[in-house]
Amino acid sequence: MLRFLYRRLRSRWPLLVFSASWTLLLTLTVAAASFAPELAFASAISPSSSFAAECKSDGLVRVPMDIPGDVLCVPDRLFRKSGIDLIVPPIFAAVVVAGSACFVRALGLWADDDDDAL
């Protein structure tokens, strides 16, 4: 039985490497897509940025707006971490990775060429 499983696994080794490569690529894409806006927003509202320097008072943070000339300063107490900050990003990442995996599966990239011969 073990010999059969070993042969089967060994014959599928290229497929496993291919699947692992796609999974890694999708995971890195999701990580870059989800952390880039967060990093940009955090650097924009940090007190040391030139963007946030337009709020002349301490305790105020400038919030990026859609119109470049608009300045909106809000109290910094509104920008604290909450408990939901630990839950939402992993759920979002899981949904995106699962959706990407379903998309790759729908494309049929895992199909073996030997199965097509009729």
Rank of each mutant, 00 (worst) to 15 (best):
V104F: 13
I67S: 13
A53K: 14
L25Q: 08
A101W: 11
C102N: 05
V74P: 01
D113A: 15
L109R: 10
G99S: 13
E38M: 04
K56G: 09
V71H: 04
S50V: 12
F51E: 14
D116P: 00
W110K: 01
L78M: 08
L107K: 11
T23G: 14
S57Q: 08
L107P: 00
A33I: 04
S46C: 02
P89E: 04
D116E: 10
P89N: 07
S48A: 13
Y6P: 00
A117P: 01
W13K: 06
S11A: 14
L5G: 00
D58T: 03
D76A: 15
S19E: 02
K81D: 03
T27P: 12
V88F: 14
F4Y: 14
T27M: 15
L72F: 11
K81L: 14
D76H: 14
L24C: 10
D85N: 11
A53Q: 14
S19K: 02
M1C: 04
S50K: 07
L78G: 13
W13Q: 09
I45A: 04
I67Q: 10
R77N: 11
A36W: 03
V104G: 03
C102F: 07
T29W: 15
W22R: 05
P68I: 01
A106K: 15
P68E: 10
A40D: 14
S11Y: 10
A93Q: 07
W13V: 03
F4V: 07
P89D: 03
A44G: 07
S34K: 02
D85Q: 03
D66R: 12
A20D: 01
A42L: 14
R3E: 09
M1T: 01
P90L: 12
G59H: 03
A33R: 00
G59M: 02
I45N: 02
D113V: 10
L86I: 07
R3Q: 15
A36E: 08
D70R: 10
Y6D: 13
V61S: 07
M1Y: 02
T23Y: 12
F18V: 04
V74A: 08
